[in-house]
Amino acid sequence: MGKSSKDKRDVYYRMAKEQGWRARSAFKLMQVDEEFNLLEGVTKAVDLCAAPGSWSQVLSKKLVENQKEGEEAKIVAVDLQAMAPLPGVIQLQGDITKQSTADQIISYFDGEMADIVVCDGAPDVTGLHDMDEYIQAQLLLAALNITTHVLRPGGSFVAKIFRGKDITLLYTQLKVFFPKVTCSKPRSSRNSSIEAFIVCQDYTPPKDYVPNMGNPLLDLAPSDAQGNSNRTIVPFIACGDLSGFDSDMTYALPDSGNNEDYKVLAPVQMPITAPYLSAMEKKRKGFFNEQMSKK
């Protein structure tokens, strides 16, 4: 298996490289937008957990189109990790659970609020499913919490979710702030993946709600509501053109049949930091080969 095998397996991965997106997830936001027209008329956007920056790229492209005379589109991209710069995108390296981060985002909008907040963040998945879902929920709630600070009423919020066992509890939380909540799965997200996107529209904070970063814990109800008829249900919409590409399908490469001619493109932007870099470095130097078992 060479470098091209991932290209063969994943049509969107290949297309992302061809079209200059930093990650295949760019298509997910584009397909969600096609369905919900979320970016129509939007000039101020916040991208939480933005690295490597593919959603900021999409926002940048769309918002520039929306830009009216004398008005400037503004995109603030926040991530814990450093991200390679993108033209027209204000980068903020910060923690979305911190008040200071919220304040900083707001400061970039000159007293105005954002039209949309997007979050494609996912935590490190350990494989312990309940733990992973909990951490993902915490990340989403942190994103929601910071959103309540920066989003204008009537604005929208889009975030990645794992459709796991506690998903209906998250729906309940989101319903408190958004009357219209839809679970959406773009066709560029694999059928086999647990991932989906929650599209929350028409931000309407509860009366007298005061955003407070000091309290990240929204009161989650006990999990005994699972599967009962009183669980919160939100509509599911598969989005993206049905006649378009299928992320699960195996496509023949262009010029297939003679794959030697096929040129594997390098990723648009290599990650600039990852936790396992030191371990990878050691591996390159042959450390693991010497040390490790024979298997």
């Binding site: 095998s5 063969k8 195996t250 496509y251 023949a252 490469l253 297939s256 049949g257």
Partner: peptide
């Protein structure tokens, strides 16, 4: 039988 070896 498939063109592409990666076919599942």
């Amino acid at each position: 039988a498939s063109e592409n070896m990666e076919t599942r």
